[in-house]
């Protein structure tokens, strides 16, 4: 029961960090507030018995902060604090209200905190992984066993998605082709 309060306090801190990140004028401070959200998320993962995820979250958060700061720090930043037009506001409010209603309806059906879904579903896959993971794959870390043995095809798809994202970033940032397209744009403007 106490763990529920600890995690709830961590999530409340994360919400405060998120609001700060979105509402601060200075872009650098908002990125650092985003870093606070990520590290609190890692602490929450540690409390919830997921050291694998906590580890990855810390490392990824560091790299994310480096990339974001490296991109924004040398620019002459004019921070725009104003919001979008009225249509955007009304649309946002309607969408968030719908999301809240939808979520609250769904969460009524959820089991209480602390009873895993795998206990409620008869013959679920997770129970099989826990029971036979060591005997079948030989790996002590069951997360790795699921990731690279039982569901390795999923990981192959993940590697493909990462490859495509990186390829897209490389194609967008390539210098030579960009100059070419810029000339084309200017010709189009002139015409």
């Amino acid at each position: 029961m106490t763990l529920e309060y600890i995690v709830a306090a961590l999530i409340i801190l994360m919400i405060m960090g998120a609001v700060t990140a979105l509402e601060t004028d200075n872009l650098l401070s908002s990125i650092i507030a985003l870093g606070a959200v990520g590290f609190l998320l890692a602490i929450a993962f540690l409390f919830l018995g997921a050291p694998d995820i906590a580890f990855t979250q810390i490392v990824v958060e560091i790299l994310l902060l480096i990339i974001l700061i490296r991109v924004t720090i040398h620019r002459d930043l004019k921070t725009t604090t104003a919001h979008r037009a009225m249509f955007g506001w009304t649309f946002a409010i309607v969408l968030i209200a719908f999301l809240t209603w939808f979520g609250l309806t769904v969460f009524e059906e959820f089991p209480a905190f602390g009873t895993a879904v795998m206990d409620r579903v008869a013959d679920s896959a997770s129970v099989t992984y826990i029971k036979e993971g060591l005997a079948k794959s030989g790996a002590g870390n069951l997360v790795t066993a699921v990731l690279l043995d039982f569901r390795a095809f999923d990981t192959l798809g993940e590697a493909t998605v990462l490859f495509c994202a990186i390829l897209g970033a490389l194609a967008i940032l390539r210098q030579k082709a960009h100059k070419h397209s810029k000339e084309k744009d200017q010709e189009a403007d002139a015409a």
Partner: peptide, 21 residues
Amino acid sequence: YGHLTPGGGFSGGVIIACAFI
């Protein structure tokens, strides 16, 4: 040691990238 202790290819790979960065 990804199959014995917490960690694995994903987090280890990001740490190696961090060293070069």
